[in-house]
Design a protein around this nucleic acid. Structure first.
Lengths: 257, 257
DNA sequence: ATCGATATTTTGTTCGAACATCCTTGCGAT
DNA sequence: ATCGCAAGGATGTTCGAACAAAATATCGAT
């Protein structure tokens, strides 16, 4: 009954913060539960491969199955959830090959989008980058993965910074794809980085990369910006892959999952 | 009540052919109706901007609203349908800017995928291209857009040919994105090409491009293959854009849609 | 004890009805 | 005549129960 525990933990974690500050109009239970499930999927509170039973989810999130089906259906098209007729929904699995594919394409598409942004971005784009970078730098790194609030905060601002870099690319489709890849990569990152194993040197390098990319972008130095961005992604991928192998080794040793 | 007519027509068109030949196991009403709606959306039987009312859809497709909600939810994440809480679902609109974005990115990603396929494709990949090309060339072009069966057949084989070119790219994510862009482009193509206005010269050029791309791909001439493929896309886009402007002109003259 | 078939339980699927929201219509006041 | 407001109808949303399929447990035969 590991599944039930996992779902229960996901719920208790998520119910801390409300869905949105305003929480005003035009929202339905289906939309809310979609957003909550999506967050919990990406954050890894729902474990890859885990079955998503309606009764459990219904109890954990406090909604009926009608909104749940709606949310899960959308998540299937988002590739975060798998579905087999008459056999229910499961959390999409992680795999090393998927991780490699994901990262390679993300690097290509993000660099592409960054180039376009540099070519076409205006002052507001520049301002947003600086604002997002500032907020990211002032966000404390979590000392433990258990400190979910800090992890969520940092991930959100990190995402926002990377989004700000490419926001002016002028292509909604490209942004959409980059967003999808970014979400999936975050799922790997958070599933895998169990310990804050990062050395001080690594963290410093990452921070420098963020700043350098931002500077190069605003200076309209496309070559430099994309080079650093690609290096930044490459570095993250290597850390994730190293941890992935550790985690899957310990998993296969622990149980036959 | 144009909406009701459109939905009724979509249904009558789709009910001609069964969902799948075997139609055996593991399928649910939700899955079936998703596939049917998806086809009708792409084929343009459901008009852009049109409201998708549950009662109409339920009557037209002969299913309850539970499976309908499930299908429509997925289609929202597929970007084929829009949703506003408490105001229902509508067919995603078409726009010139979206068309431009779509086509530019499709060209880039498809050429990228083609390059990868050429680098890594094996004999089966080559064989599939030749098979798909052969089937496409032997498929009669529809003399009228009213001849839906022929249009569907041609579109399916055309899609399959283009898919075969990039199938060996080795990146599921890239294939997924190319597929999404291809589906959306097909929606524009079919919405807009009301008359088979294509000159004999144009058709001949398109056929030649198909054959040349296939040959260049199999000859592992990446430069030539991607150049022709990009030209091919560019040609299609120009035709679609020309027709798009005509159609939207006649639409804005006819009614205030 | 193992295998296979049947019975039971669990789980997913679908429908119909109750409920909430939005849109339209009609009325009255300025 | 126009604007604002209230009543009514249409539409979307959610739930609970009936239904169907799958997974599990039970029992008997070899």
């Amino acid at each position: 009954m590991i599944g039930a525990e996992s779902i229960a933990r996901a719920e208790s974690a998520v119910s801390l913060q409300s869905v949105s500050p305003g929480d005003d109009d035009a929202t339905t239970l289906g939309i809310e539960i979609y957003a909550r499930l999506r967050r919990d999927l990406i954050a890894g509170h729902l474990k890859p491969g885990e079955r998503l039973r309606f009764r459990q989810l219904s109890a954990a999130y406090g909604v009926g199955i009608a909104p749940l089906r709606e949310a899960l259906s959308r998540l299937v098209s988002d590739q975060l959830v798998r579905f087999e007729g008459h056999r229910g929904y499961t959390v999409a699995p992680l795999s090393l090959s998927d991780l490699h594919d994901l990262c390679a394409l993300r690097t290509e598409l993000s660099c592409n989008a960054l180039r376009r942004s540099i070519a076409g971005g205006d002052e507001d784009w520049e301002a947003e980058i600086l604002a997002a970078l500032h907020r990211l730098e002032r966000t404390p790194l979590p000392h433990s993965v258990e400190d979910r609030k800090t992890v969520d905060e940092w991930e959100q601002r990190h995402d926002r910074f990377h989004h700000s870099l490419i926001a002016a690319c002028g292509s909604p489709w490209l942004l959409h794809f980059c967003g999808a890849l970014s979400d999936h990569f975050q799922r790997y990152r958070r599933a895998v980085i169990v310990v804050t194993s990062s050395s001080e040197a690594l963290l410093k390098r990452v921070r420098e990369q963020h700043r350098t990319v931002a500077e190069a972008a605003i200076a309209r130095d496309a070559e430099r910006a994309t080079t650093i961005l690609a290096e930044h992604f490459q570095g993250s991928v290597e850390v994730v892959i190293r941890n992935y192998e550790e985690v899957s080794r310990s998993l296969s040793a622990g149980n036959g999952d």
